[in-house]
Structure formats: C-alpha cells, structure tokens
Amino acid sequence: MAKSQETFNKKEKEKKRLKKKQDKEQKREERKSTSSKGKSLEEMYAYVDENGDLTFTPPDPKKRIVIKQEDIEIGVSKQEAPDPADLIRKGIITFFNESKGYGFIKDQESQESIFVHVNSFEEELGENDKVTFETEKGQKGLNAVRVKKQK
C-alpha cells in the first residue's frame, strides 16, 4: 500500500483556506444585516445639535437661531491702506561695509537692526549717518529701502 499524499503542511493550508472562506462569508452576512439599503429616508437622517455634534434625533425648534443672509461675511475684512507718512522710519547707520556693500540701520523707535544694501541708498551715506527709510520684507527679515539722509 502506498503512503497518503496528504502531508501535515497540506492539511494546515487547507484548514486555513476554509477558515478564511468562513470568515469572509460571516463578514458578508454582517454587512447585509447592518446595511442601510432597506431603511427609510427618515431613519438615515443625521442632525447637528446646538453644540455642533451629530445626533439622530431632530433638534428642538425652540432653540433654533435665525441668521440673516446679509449678516454673513465671506472672506477677509478690508483694511485701510496705511498712511505713507507712517511707513517712513528714522534711524542711524550703525555698521556699513563699503567693500561688500551692506550694513545695518538701528531703528530709533523699535531699536531693532535692519539690513540695508548699497543699492537701496538714494545718496552717498556712511556709518553714523542719521537716515530716513522704508522697510520691505526680505528672505531673511526686514530690509531697508529708499534710504536718504535725514534733513
């Protein structure tokens, strides 16, 4: 008599395959039983209560808040354009390297150092000169532009 061709490994693989098939069938049956296809439209509604939470019960009509369409504002509120006189700052050139063409201006109001490049000068300037300037946002912070000697 010949030996059976079914080994232990084959039996285990067959058991796993059957178990997987049964699990899949069971999950399919669960999905069918909990499916919302047979429910009415009212049973599928979800409501938002006064706190913003989802519920399955309709909200109380007494707690309803009426909002007029004109009161809804979409977007960012418009800001007034700044006065050009407010943009002009005063300061002193604390450091300037003429060979490299850059330096720093110390703002009189905020006492912060602001980078300045020689291309921003409107006239010949050097260290310790009192100046008026405007600022622009640069890659690494504020840059002084339109730098003039203070009158």
Rank of each mutant, 00 (worst) to 15 (best):
V116G: 08
S120T: 00
Q139C: 08
R89Y: 05
A144E: 02
E6T: 14
L54H: 06
S4G: 11
S99Q: 12
I65V: 10
P84S: 04
I65K: 00
S99G: 07
L41N: 13
G75N: 04
M44I: 12
S4D: 13
K32E: 09
K151C: 04
Q139S: 12
M44V: 12
E73T: 13
N9C: 11
K149I: 01
E112D: 08
S36C: 09
G138T: 05
E14G: 09
Y47I: 02
V145D: 04
Q111C: 08
D86A: 09
E29Q: 14
E124I: 14
E50C: 06
E80A: 14
K3M: 10
K32T: 05
K63P: 05
V118N: 04
S110M: 06
T132C: 04
K16P: 02
E73D: 09
I114Q: 01
E29W: 10
S99H: 10
V116R: 06
L41C: 11
K16M: 12
S110K: 02
E73L: 11
K68V: 07
Q79K: 15
I67Y: 14
Q108V: 10
K151M: 05
E73S: 09
K16T: 06
A144G: 02
G38T: 15
K15A: 12
D83K: 13
F133A: 03
N119K: 11
I105C: 01
D60K: 01
K130W: 09
G141W: 05
S36W: 13
N119A: 07
F104G: 00
V48Q: 00
S110L: 05
G141D: 07
K32N: 08
Q22E: 15
E80K: 15
E127P: 15
E109T: 13
S35W: 05
G138M: 01
A2F: 12
F56T: 15
N128H: 10
K68T: 14
G52K: 00
E124Q: 07
S99D: 13
E136S: 10
I114M: 00
F121A: 03
P59M: 03
L125N: 09
D23C: 13
D53R: 00
V145W: 04
R31P: 08
N97T: 02
I67N: 06
K137N: 14
N128D: 14
K3E: 15
S40Q: 08
K39W: 05
S77D: 12
I65N: 01
L18V: 13
Y45H: 15
L18M: 13
D129K: 00
R146Y: 11
N51P: 02
V116F: 02
E25W: 11
